[in-house]
């Protein structure tokens, strides 16, 4: 057990070192510009899966969390001149609070009704921000990046490494939740909430915990967006695309294991980025939709399920 835990952290450090190495080796900033988007989606999908995959509560409000993350960062930057890491920490706190409120919704709302409520929440929050002049309101807001911090030589490369670090934090949290008593309780809730409660599972507390962790990660993922684009407006910050993508990537990757959303986000994210460059950015959404349908029908356990089946077949073939 402890060996495996160390293994994970050693791997994480290697990934982080590799990411930094890449920023030294590769000159072209576009690679990092595109890579950052994929990292963002890995965090969003991983965060979505903590509530949606483990506990079975389908959250359609990823874009609400993302948008609140963006605007928390903008507010902190404009009002206090807060540095990026403080913006992200502040966004995580806001996300945890918003997640807690979302968790309270589960008291009365289950299944599709919960999902609809999260869509409503997105619209309400977006409307509030549209009418908030201080952070730019409906016209959006320009932000000027501060100079890049040592040891980085470009802001985008720094964002890329921070993105990798956030992915590591998200995956570590998701992995911990999955492997611990929390994950077992959440799965019991997903299978049968009443039976879970009668078996001693504190269902409300666990749902609030899952919502808060998930929300904190989503908002933290949104926070660097302002500095990344040097601009923010409500239409892109609260874009429904984040909700759909986080959900689709988790489902396509497989929701039962932390690696599923990571795999789904990488496969889908890379495909989307490649299509944006080679064909058109509109085709993205079509690809997402088609892949989602294919997987829901053909491989309900996602890529991970397919890999597991393939592995089992291989093992059987090798044994006989």
């Amino acid at each position: 057990m402890s060996m495996r835990r160390h293994g994970f952290w050693i791997g994480a450090l290697c990934v982080l070192a590799l990411a930094y190495g890449l920023t030294l080796a590769i000159r072209n900033e576009y690679a990092f510009f595109a890579g950052f988007i994929i990292l963002q989606f890995i965090v969003l999908a991983t965060a979505w899966n903590i509530l949606g995959g483990y506990a079975g509560y389908v959250n359609f409000g990823t874009s609400a969390f993302f948008g609140i993350g963006v605007y928390t960062a903008i507010f902190l930057f404009k009002a206090l001149g807060a540095p990026l890491l403080v913006q992200m920490a502040g966004a995580a706190v806001m996300g945890a609070l918003l997640g807690f409120v979302t968790g309270l919704l589960t008291l009365r709302l289950h299944g599709i009704f919960f999902s609809i409520a999260t869509v409503a929440m997105t619209i309400i929050l977006e409307t509030l921000v549209i009418n908030w002049k201080y952070v730019g309101g409906a016209t959006g807001i320009q932000v000027l990046r501060p100079p890049v911090t040592e040891p980085f030589d470009s802001y985008i490369k720094m964002l890329f490494v921070i993105g990798v670090a956030l992915v590591i934090v998200a995956v570590a949290l998701s992995r911990h939740v999955q492997g611990s008593w929390i994950g077992r309780g959440l799965r019991a809730i997903r299978d049968d909430e009443t039976a879970a409660e009668c078996t001693g599972v504190p269902t409300l507390r666990l749902k609030l915990l899952a919502c808060s962790i998930s929300g904190a990660l989503m908002c933290a993922a949104g926070a660097p967006s302002a500095m990344y684009l040097q601009f923010a407006d409500t239409t892109s910050a609260f874009n429904l695309n984040y909700s759909v993508s986080a959900l689709a990537m988790s489902l396509i990757g497989g929701t039962s294991h932390w690696a599923g959303p990571v795999l789904g986000a990488i496969v889908l994210g890379v495909t989307q980025q490649a299509l944006t460059v080679t064909i058109s950015s509109e085709l993205n959404v079509l690809v997402l939709g088609v892949m989602l349908i294919l997987f829901v029908v053909g491989a309900p356990e996602g890529l991970l399920g397919l890999l597991r089946k393939g592995w089992a077949r291989l093992a059987r073939g090798g044994g006989s």
Binding site: R187, A188, R190, D191, D192, T194, A195, A196, S256
Partner: peptide
Amino acid sequence: QIPRPFKSM
């Protein structure tokens, strides 16, 4: 009354 197992487990 109607068994309620945790089906995925």
